[in-house]
Simulated scan of single mutants.
Amino acid sequence: MRIAVTGGSGKLGRTVVRQLREHGHLVVNLDQSGERGPGFVRIDLRDAGQVLDALTGIDEQAPDGFDAVVHLSAIPAPGLATNAATFQNNIISTYNVFTAAIKAGITNIVTASSETVLGLPFDTPPPYIPVDEDYAARPESTYSLSKHLEEQMAIELTRWHPGLKIIALRFSNVMDEEDYEQFPSFDAEATRRKWNLWGYIDGRDGAQAVRLALEHRATGFDRFIVAAADTVMSRDNAELVAEVFPDVPVRGDISGHGTLLSIDRARSVLGFEPQHSWRRSAR
Rank of each mutant, 00 (worst) to 15 (best):
Met1Trp: 05
Ile3Met: 03
Ala4Ser: 06
Ala4Thr: 10
Ser9Arg: 09
Leu12Asn: 09
Gly13Arg: 10
Thr15Val: 15
Val16Tyr: 11
Glu22Thr: 12
Gly24Lys: 12
Leu26Val: 15
Val28Leu: 12
Gln32Lys: 15
Ser33Arg: 06
Pro38Glu: 13
Pro38Gln: 12
Pro38Lys: 14
Val41Thr: 13
Arg42Ile: 01
Arg42Ser: 15
Ile43Pro: 07
Ile43Leu: 09
Arg46His: 01
Arg46Lys: 09
Ala48Met: 05
Gly49Ser: 12
Gln50Thr: 00
Ala54Asp: 07
Ile58Ser: 08
Asp59Val: 12
Asp67Val: 05
Ala68Pro: 04
Ala68Leu: 08
Val69Phe: 08
Leu72Thr: 04
Ser73Tyr: 02
Gly79Arg: 07
Asn89Tyr: 10
Asn90Ser: 05
Ile92Gly: 00
Ser93Thr: 07
Thr94Arg: 06
Tyr95Cys: 04
Ala100Leu: 04
Ala104Gly: 07
Ile106Thr: 05
Thr107Asp: 15
Asn108Thr: 09
Thr111Gln: 04
Thr111His: 08
Thr111Phe: 10
Ser113Trp: 02
Val117Met: 03
Thr124Tyr: 05
Thr124Leu: 15
Pro125Cys: 04
Pro125His: 12
Pro125Lys: 00
Pro126Gly: 05
Pro127Tyr: 06
Pro130Phe: 14
Asp132Thr: 06
Ala137Pro: 00
Glu140Tyr: 06
Ser146Trp: 03
Ser146Gln: 03
Met153His: 11
Glu156Phe: 06
Trp160Glu: 14
Trp160Lys: 14
Gly163Thr: 12
Leu164Glu: 13
Lys165Tyr: 05
Leu169Phe: 10
Phe171Cys: 01
Ser172Leu: 02
Asn173Met: 12
Asn173Arg: 13
Met175Leu: 05
Glu177Gln: 12
Asp179Phe: 06
Tyr180Met: 04
Gln182Cys: 01
Pro184Phe: 03
Pro184Lys: 04
Ala190Arg: 00
Ala190Val: 10
Arg193Ala: 13
Lys194Phe: 04
Lys194Ala: 15
Lys194Asn: 13
Asn196Ile: 01
Trp198Phe: 08
Asp205Ala: 14
Gly206Val: 06
Gln208His: 07
Gln208Thr: 10
Ala209Glu: 15
Ala209Lys: 11
Arg211Thr: 02
Ala213His: 05
Leu214Asp: 14
Leu214Phe: 07
Glu215Gln: 15
His216Arg: 07
Arg217Ile: 10
Thr219Cys: 12
Thr219Ile: 13
Phe221Gly: 04
Phe224Asp: 01
Ile225Pro: 15
Val226Asp: 08
Val226Gly: 07
Ala228Tyr: 02
Val232Lys: 01
Met233Leu: 12
Ser234Pro: 00
Glu239Met: 11
Leu240Ser: 02
Val241Pro: 05
Val241Phe: 09
Pro246Ile: 00
Val248Lys: 09
Arg251Met: 11
Gly256Ser: 08
His257Lys: 14
His257Gln: 13
Gly258Glu: 08
Thr259Ser: 15
Leu260Met: 13
Leu261Tyr: 08
Ser262Arg: 05
Arg265Leu: 15
Ala266Leu: 01
Gln275Asn: 07
Gln275Val: 00
Gln275Thr: 10
His276Ile: 09
Ser277Phe: 08
Ser277Ala: 11
Trp278Leu: 10
Arg283Asn: 10
Arg283Leu: 03
Arg283Cys: 04
